[in-house]
Design a binder for these strands. Structure first.
Length: 431
DNA sequence: CCTCCACTGGAATGTGAGGCGT
DNA sequence: ACGCCTCACATTCCAGTGGAGG
């Protein structure tokens, strides 16, 4: 979904800010809210939104670095091939787009630069990628070439692409976002070899963007000599940078709606967990929406905490989505035990007793203790549970001690929403 | 240093769903 | 429709474990 938004943005960067939400209109129907006391321009919190140049936070070095490497392009020479990598939400695509736009504008008078952006998660086969590349770089009036949507072979697409590149540009920068989604990397080889093998006069530079570090490592072995790329690594944002990024979007909210500590808190949460700016802004938007739904006029720390909890719930939901009922019952027994007792870890037999109760109430088959232990162990693999050993000494024997890694309330709430567990909790929550 | 206990976890075995060739 | 195989899930059995306490 967001890929589409991104692309849309790329073509019309201005429109994003031009739109406003929730104009007041005479509207008599009381079931609809006609004004929004929280947001003034929610679009600023959209994923595709890209701030102006001077508002890109904490990426000065990367911008300078990338600029240096693209310098050859603006003089009409071959730019270096570059692999940009780093975790999601670290501003990779943003910086690349920003710098290539500037490169286009900064080109020498007698040099024309073509920039094409391909989202490989959308165009994930070689043919699709080449054809949309050709379409994006084409201008039928200039080249007289029209690109058919389908019906021609991959090599034909390449030939058309070479022709377009030669007639229109002196150098071209081709951005392949999410390269790791490509089913084959033929396009990398063919594009990087195009000039060498004298298929085109135009100099071609590739910028490949990936959030999988393993992909970058494995790339050398596969495409090897032809695609000789330099790396550019993006660190996750720290709390200060995240805070600044969010302050830059403050205008999404009406003035005075955000209380002082909202943004610092959201930034701290995000930095602690992932350093992902995209998720951080999501949290902020969520907090606003929660406040809106509650008819509050201000967004407070509490709303941020609630938003964070919501996000964690979503994450956990994804994690256990598709787990068998038994695994859920096992987790539920551990979660309820954790909530009820004032401790956080329990020996297996205690959890098993609890599990048997849960099964009785939910009418689930009770599995053997042996199988139960295996299921608990599987949860360790998923990172939901931690198991350590404890020896109770003479007369005590060896026990496993199980601890829920996730917040037990979140686990309970998520599982509670799960249909099969619906009505059990009210009955068993009391000791 | 030895003992002792109560659980742990490997191995063998059973069961039923689903895929594959005929 | 049939037998055959594989796979995931589940049970039963039991030797092994390892540190507090004697």
């Amino acid at each position: 979904m967001w890929c589409a938004t991104r692309r849309w943005f790329f073509v019309h960067p201005i429109q994003t800010t031009a739109m406003t939400t929730n104009r007041e209109k005479p509207n008599a129907d009381p079931i609809f809210k006609t004004t929004n006391p929280i947001f003034s321009n929610k679009d600023l919190l959209k994923i595709g939104h890209v701030p102006e140049a001077d508002r890109i936070v904490g990426r000065e070095e990367e911008i300078a670095d990338l600029g240096k490497r693209l310098s050859d392009a603006i003089q009409g020479y071959s730019p270096e091939d570059i692999v940009v990598y780093g975790k999601t939400g670290t501003g990779k695509s943003l910086v690349v787009r920003h710098v290539t736009n500037r490169a286009k504008a900064a080109a020498n008078a007698d040099v024309t630069i073509g920039v094409a952006y391909i989202d490989c998660s959308e165009d994930n086969t070689e043919t699709q990628a080449v054809s949309s590349l050709a379409m994006k770089l084409n201008n039928q009036d200039e080249t007289g070439v029209s690109i058919p949507y389908h019906g021609i072979s991959m090599s034909k697409y390449y030939k058309l692409l070479w022709k377009i590149l030669d007639t229109r540009f002196d150098s071209a920068i081709i951005i392949l976002d999410e390269v790791d989604m490509l089913k084959d990397d033929g396009i990398l080889m063919k594009l990087s070899r195009a000039e060498e093998s004298q298929k085109v006069e135009c100099s071609v530079g590739i910028i490949a963007i990936s959030n999988k570090i393993q992909y970058v490592e494995s790339l050398d072995e596969r495409v090897g000599s032809s695609f000789r790329a330099r790396d550019l690594f993006f660190d996750p944002y720290d709390a200060n940078q995240l805070r600044e990024i969010m302050y830059n979007r403050e205008e999404a909210f009406k003035e005075g709606v955000l209380t002082e500590d909202v943004i610092p808190l959201a930034a701290a949460f995000a930095a602690q967990e992932h350093g992902d700016a995209r998720k951080a802004i999501d949290t902020l938007r969520h907090a606003g929406e929660i406040a809106y739904r509650a008819d509050d006029t201000k967004v407070t720390e509490e709303h941020v905490r609630a938003a964070k909890k919501e996000a964690e719930k979503d994450r956990f939901k994804d994690l256990i989505n598709g787990s068998p009922t038994q695994a859920k019952a096992v987790l539920l027994s551990l979660a309820s035990l954790t909530i009820r007792e004032e401790e956080d870890s329990f020996i297996t037999s205690d959890v098993y007793d609890r599990y048997k109760q849960v099964c009785k109430i939910t009418h689930i088959d009770i599995l053997s203790g042996r199988r139960f232990r295996d299921i608990l162990k599987e949860q360790v693999f998923l990172g939901v549970v931690e198991i350590s050993k404890r020896n109770m000494g003479s007369g005590g024997g060896i026990h496993n001690v199980n601890r829920l890694v996730e917040d037990p309330e979140i686990v309970r709430d998520v599982l509670y929403e799960d249909t099969r567990m619906e009505d059990w909790f009210d009955q068993t929550d009391q000791p």
